[in-house]
Simulated scan of single mutants.
Amino acid sequence: MQTTILRDWAQFMTLTSTLDGWAFRGQQNTAWQLESSLTRYLRAYADDQRQWRAREERAIRVFRRKAHNFLEHPGLLDNDLRCLALMQHHGAPTRLLDFTKSPFVAAFFALERATGDAAVYALNTPALYNSRALPKGDPGLTRDVIDPRVQGHFDQYFFCNRHEVIWFGEPTEMDDRLIAQSGTFVVPGVIDRPLARILDDYESSEELLHKVILPASVPVDAMKWLYRMNITNASLFPGLDGLARSIAVELEIVWSGMTPGHDA
């Protein structure tokens, strides 16, 4: 995995312009590994990795048994990927990793509450999509073959935690948040390894993962640019909750030329 340490925000815009079609994920701490909320949770609360599969299955089973009480269309729970996306949307730990097709949305999530150096990871989704990158151990497991949107594929290729593969994409039906964030999901076939280690076992002549470190000196200029691009919590999280969360930026950024009573 190649790593670039930025000098300034302009370098980020130049670099990401060369990564056409890639997917991006922002993380508030550059030391964090690229792994799912489920992996982080299980590592903290379930030392015995032999229990991880059973715990994940139980969490999904409990959610399915109870979530129908709050859904207008409970049938969404029948599809594995849609069910996990719904869990992720509402804060449950899942094996899904949130990515976005916009490097600027990823930068916002990396910088919004960062207190030190942050990072944006770029994933070469075109190479994965066109099978220019395949797992060395299971080269037949292409993106189309393991597609988790197909009924039964989650059990066969993912929940079993035997295949060191990844899939990326969206559910057939996308919710408003996924649309607003230009979002996509990365689904790992195993939950006991970070994404970078899984990709290390892929055969490809191309770079598959690039880590961009945003030093603590970058956020001021970056957040102003993102604000001007209308990338805020209000736009990324449709509804009153997103608007309320976006007010924090208004407290942080000092706009030149502002006068009392003038709205930026």
Results as ranks from 00 to 15, higher is better:
residue 73 H to G: 04
residue 112 E to Y: 14
residue 191 I to L: 04
residue 194 P to Y: 12
residue 113 R to S: 13
residue 93 P to N: 03
residue 121 Y to C: 06
residue 192 D to C: 10
residue 212 V to M: 06
residue 26 G to H: 07
residue 225 W to E: 14
residue 126 P to E: 07
residue 79 N to L: 12
residue 212 V to K: 02
residue 186 V to R: 00
residue 262 H to S: 15
residue 180 A to D: 06
residue 98 D to K: 00
residue 261 G to K: 13
residue 91 G to Q: 04
residue 197 R to E: 15
residue 189 G to H: 05
residue 100 T to F: 05
residue 195 L to N: 01
residue 159 F to S: 11
residue 122 A to P: 06
residue 242 G to E: 03
residue 121 Y to D: 04
residue 117 D to L: 08
residue 96 L to S: 00
residue 114 A to Q: 05
residue 34 L to E: 03
residue 226 L to C: 01
residue 49 Q to Y: 06
residue 166 I to G: 01
residue 220 V to N: 05
residue 76 L to H: 02
residue 35 E to K: 05
residue 83 C to F: 00
residue 131 S to E: 08
residue 251 L to E: 13
residue 257 G to Q: 03
residue 195 L to T: 03
residue 205 S to Y: 09
residue 108 F to E: 00
residue 39 T to L: 04
residue 258 M to S: 11
residue 10 A to C: 12
residue 198 I to H: 07
residue 197 R to K: 10
residue 18 T to V: 11
residue 205 S to K: 12
residue 89 H to D: 02
residue 174 M to C: 15
residue 206 E to G: 07
residue 110 A to L: 07
residue 207 E to P: 08
residue 249 V to T: 08
residue 178 L to D: 06
residue 196 A to W: 11
residue 261 G to Y: 11
residue 69 N to R: 14
residue 39 T to I: 05
residue 115 T to D: 10
residue 214 L to S: 02
residue 10 A to H: 11
residue 148 P to F: 06
residue 134 L to A: 07
residue 181 Q to Y: 04
residue 101 K to D: 07
residue 102 S to E: 04
residue 63 F to V: 05
residue 195 L to D: 02
residue 68 H to D: 09
residue 226 L to W: 00
residue 225 W to Q: 15
residue 239 G to C: 03
residue 115 T to G: 04
residue 104 F to A: 09
residue 77 L to H: 03
residue 249 V to P: 01
residue 132 R to K: 13
residue 255 W to E: 14
residue 160 C to Y: 02
residue 167 W to C: 11
residue 208 L to Q: 08
residue 125 T to Y: 13
residue 164 E to C: 10
residue 211 K to V: 07
residue 12 F to L: 10
residue 192 D to L: 06
residue 22 W to L: 04
residue 48 D to P: 07
residue 247 I to V: 15
residue 60 I to K: 00
residue 162 R to T: 05
residue 73 H to S: 05
residue 65 R to I: 00
residue 198 I to C: 14
residue 227 Y to M: 09
residue 123 L to N: 00
residue 53 R to G: 03
residue 139 P to N: 13
residue 58 R to Y: 14
residue 63 F to A: 03
residue 116 G to A: 09
residue 208 L to T: 06
residue 43 R to C: 09
residue 52 W to P: 02
residue 51 Q to D: 06
residue 18 T to C: 14
residue 37 S to I: 03
residue 240 L to T: 12
residue 80 D to V: 01
residue 219 P to Y: 01
residue 141 L to M: 11
residue 69 N to W: 13
